[in-house]
Nucleic acid binder design. Structure first.
Length: 426
DNA sequence: GTGTGGTCCTTGAGCGCGAT
DNA sequence: ATCGCGCTCAAGGACCACAC
């Protein structure tokens, strides 16, 4: 045992000092750092396997303060999958190749069994190496799409003009050059809304707008690309989601990332995104058919129960208040509810008035908005106007008299939800 | 008691297949 | 030809069981 330990230390003593000092140097490329870490981890775990230890540790250095993965006897399969994944990542880095999750999965389908096992391994490896997924040359199958006033110049691909075609959002866009005269980005929750807006001439109506969707919960690539556009071009970002608990959670995922932030998706969020609808309280502002209102299910109420404290913690008073209203009235709405009001209704009466006035003035085709404002009297102040500044920073100090403070909302809402759960036989 | 893996649920979408 | 169903994929979160 002692001999082995001596041998082990002999194996790494030569490189240990240089290893640690090497890793701390910022000038070393990410790729080289990751490869060194993997080499260490594989050699180290190999030694542990020889010793037939009860518990194995996957680590990237001898420094005990560094992140490591621990594997008990019941986690043999997990270890096997993680090691295969580590080998695949090393292969990608060594050969300067990029691969999708799906491709990696099919390379060792018998090992991973189902894709979520590979997802779990990738997540673990990102934590272990302290690198984002894209830095490890792992791409996700693009899910998000984009259309509007922007052109990407992508290395090795060429010109991708989003004015004339839908663009699949992948990590490759992150490293492209941009040509754009856009002055805002509109993120919509789902593809049906995206297509509907395109069909209703979104591009003619908003020639300087960019429309984005990630088809449900946003993937990391889409969040990263929106963040990149926001950072580079300072576009204001607006978000349009269903007036239901999932829609609100999707908004929070865009704005703050996932609750369990991982190395895989580190930094993939867009703090400047502004929620412009569909608010539950929009039921009072638009002429929405009662049949478009769907009763909250038990699972919805449970989700609201979790979202309320989260929104309070995040200081999202509008979200808290809208959730409160939703629970009090016990129904939710999808974006399609607005479409039922009339042709181009969503673009004209929901989106146009809710992007900033400076943007509206730049739109030649929006003369109808002033007419709309005259003909349509809001029964109450829309939430997006109450405490959102033009620069996208929320100002939670200016609550009107009728608004509840967070403490009141919390207790009222929770009581309401408890009653609903008790009465809900669904 | 705490942390974590595995499982199952939700959202969004697409595709193939069988019944009508 | 159309519709409904069940499967897939990619994200998210919640919950339970188990190891430490």
């Amino acid at each position: 045992m002692r001999n082995t330990e001596t041998q082990e230390s002999a194996n790494y003593s030569d490189s240990e000092e240089s290893e640690d000092s090497f890793l701390e140097e910022e000038t070393v490329p990410v790729k080289e750092q990751a490869m060194r870490k993997i080499e260490f981890a594989l050699a180290d775990i190999n030694e542990q396997l020889k010793k037939n230890l009860k518990q194995l540790v996957l680590r990237t250095s001898n420094n005990k303060s560094d992140f490591f993965l621990r594997y008990s006897t019941r986690m043999k399969k997990k270890l096997d999958r993680d090691l295969h994944c580590l080998h695949q990542v090393y292969d990608l880095l060594e050969n300067d190749k990029k691969s999708t999750k799906r491709e990696l999965f099919y390379e060792h389908k018998s090992i991973y069994e189902v894709q979520r096992n590979l997802d779990s391994s990738i997540k673990s490896i990102c934590e272990l190496l302290d690198e984002s997924r894209s830095n490890l040359n792992i791409l996700s199958c693009g899910r998000g799409i984009l259309r509007g006033a922007i052109t990407f110049l992508v290395k090795d691909v060429g010109v991708i003009d989003a004015r004339v075609q839908e663009v699949l959002i992948t990590d490759a866009l992150l490293h492209s050059e941009l040509i754009s005269e856009a002055n805002f980005i509109l993120v919509v929750e789902k593809d049906t809304t995206f297509q509907k807006l395109i069909d209703e001439n979104f591009q003619q109506m908003f020639p300087r707008g960019i429309l984005v969707t990630s088809k449900g919960y946003p993937d990391i690539a889409t969040r990263n690309v929106i963040k990149m556009l926001s950072d580079k071009k300072k576009f204001p970002i607006y978000g349009l989601f269903d007036a239901d608990p999932h829609g609100i959670e999707i908004y929070l995922t865009y704005k703050y990332g996932a609750i369990k932030e991982s190395a895989e998706g580190r930094g993939a969020f867009v703090p400047s995104i502004q929620w412009i609808g569909l608010f539950p309280t929009d039921y009072n502002r638009f002429i929405i058919d009662r049949t478009q209102c769907l009763k909250l299910k038990r699972t919805d109420i449970v989700k609201v129960e979790n979202l309320v404290p989260r929104s309070i913690q995040l200081g999202e008073s509008i979200v808290t208040r809208e959730l409160d209203w939703m629970v009090q009235h016990s129904f939710k709405m999808e974006l399609e509810a607005i479409n039922m009001c009339g042709p181009e209704y969503m673009s004209r009466y929901l989106i146009a008035p809710r992007v900033t006035p400076s943007n509206l003035q730049a739109e030649k085709h929006l003369s109808f908005t002033s007419g709309f404002e005259q003909e349509f009297q809001f029964s109450e102040t829309p939430a997006y106007m109450e405490n959102t500044n033009v620069d996208g920073c929320n100002d939670t100090d200016d609550e009107d008299d009728e608004s509840l403070d967070d403490t009141d909302i919390d207790s009222d809402t929770l009581r309401m939800m408890e009653e609903l759960i008790d009465n809900d036989s669904d």
